[in-house]
Design a protein around this nucleic acid. Sequence first.
DNA 1: TTGAAAGCGCTAACAA
DNA 2: TTGTTAGCGCTTTCAA
Lengths: 340, 340
Amino acid sequence: MGGMKVRGRMSRVRPTIEDVARAAGVSRATASRVINNAPGASGPLRARVSAAVAELGYQPNETARALASGRQRAVDVVAVTYGPGPGWLATHPYFSRVLAGMMPVLERVDAQLRLHAVGLRSSAAAIDEIADNAGLGVVLADITPALAVRVHRRCRRTVSLVPTAPSVPGVEADNIGGAYAAVNELHQRGCRRIAAIHGPAANPCAIDRRTGYRQAVDALGLAELSADGDFRREGGYHAAQRLLEQHPDIDAMFIACDLMAAGAIQAITASGRRVPHDISIIGFDDSIAAVCTNPPLTTMRLPVEDMAAAATRLLLEGTPSAGYRQRFPVDLVVRDSTCR
Amino acid sequence: MGGMKVRGRMSRVRPTIEDVARAAGVSRATASRVINNAPGASGPLRARVSAAVAELGYQPNETARALASGRQRAVDVVAVTYGPGPGWLATHPYFSRVLAGMMPVLERVDAQLRLHAVGLRSSAAAIDEIADNAGLGVVLADITPALAVRVHRRCRRTVSLVPTAPSVPGVEADNIGGAYAAVNELHQRGCRRIAAIHGPAANPCAIDRRTGYRQAVDALGLAELSADGDFRREGGYHAAQRLLEQHPDIDAMFIACDLMAAGAIQAITASGRRVPHDISIIGFDDSIAAVCTNPPLTTMRLPVEDMAAAATRLLLEGTPSAGYRQRFPVDLVVRDSTCR
DNA sequence: TTGAAAGCGCTAACAA
DNA sequence: TTGTTAGCGCTTTCAA
């Protein structure tokens, strides 16, 4: 039976393109053409259809559109959370910045952003589903190399913002170089006992920053004084406490993220020492935390917004070739946590 | 002609449920049943289908699923940005917190989160499209009353996290009461020249906090000493400077958000005054900024994560009735920016 | 330029 | 329990 839709005066059934076509006295095809501003439909008909659209308050059903055309208007962002519980990443300034970088470019093409938080455990299956149902592409905001490869295998329109595997297209920052430069800067300012507070052992960015610190300290003939953090303020606080206790003669710290640096400053201050007078500090990220501390942080700027915007544009343009790389520098931003 | 799909050895055409059914030697309906874990299909067939799914690496097409079933598996979040350019909201700690609150509850039901950043101008049309294509529901993270009404008119499954119109379901914090309590706290601690730094004039939360400040100051018989900010650190810095210049005898500040408070502390410190010795400060939000400052901020805690989680659960449960309200308290969190 | 008609991949009556 | 058959609302050949 033809589906004789009940549509009383009060009924709020959303009008379909069929309704528009009928109201305009044209075929669905024609209605579709003018609605999509496509060629091959014209003159008075365009006007009639437009009028019908306006009168009915018609809005295309994006789901149907996506199914029929095979195109979607959303970019997927996936972040596997290393931290305690899902949600902690969302709280981290880094994550806000990737969103902040992506939104303006998406808004310009009128696309949305789909967020997927994936627990480190539940991931494998969830990852496949995301990859298979990806829209315009997927941006890997934070992920392990293994998982990145898995996504890329199922969806070529993928870009990672963190170091992963050689095959996965990436928009990367020079984490190693940045960390190296930070230690060098500290050394040039006369510091000789340069400690470090690192990020999570499994985090690819943290790994690179750790590597950069080690290389620099080796090259300069300094002692390695490391403590492990978790990219959170609390972790930075406690790591700094430990460092101060074990090595009271520390005169500088390189800290793998600003949030931890904020905690470290508090620990240092609480121990009776002053920043930068007694201990110089260089953070990493140049996130919102860097300008909230007292003194404001000297830090290595990670151009997250730029990177996220570049990744998004890349996806919008097409499918990046396997192994694609775009590199971003990590520059020193001098504020007040370094002496001299 | 029947679409004889070309599917050579190397071809990577995604398998459909049709393929699964064929491979398992069952009908599409049966395949669908076992894939969806629905009743009315069983024993050996379930096994055969599962095997086929595994072998083919089948993943349901969510778009087709949504169209056919009329159900979606995503919640929409909309934020109209008051600030300079899109993206600034995403940078603000508030926004991260709503995401952080929503993600865990969405992850539990395996749903996604769709983000829509809407410029204050481009909004009306964009808003309609979002409302008409909403999934499980829409969470209004930041919006004007007019726009909120507009969304709610087109999509009943809407909840706002900020004060809007009476009809729009809301999960609200007691902004007025919080601001009032802050001023009272300052007064009880002996402060008598209590200034305020407010948020954007058009922001509903900012409006309420301003109201709370005025009411308190009136009730206590104190002078109103107000400056306008923008919910950003820079704005807080400059507002504090102005305040200090115009009213050098200020002994406390109530600041409508922690980010501005961070800026204010820097301005106060730069002027040679000390926090809290010379000037006590109470912020608002209890965001990440509150614990990064030096000294850490005494602030009024806005339970954003809880509110966002509650809003999400509400949407997941069904359609909130018009005018629905759930209220959250705004409690004092004492840290070190208040004297005594 | 316009319309008829065949799907997109799936779900959900309805029959068997 | 299983399969058959309509659609979901739209885009897009293909004819006219």
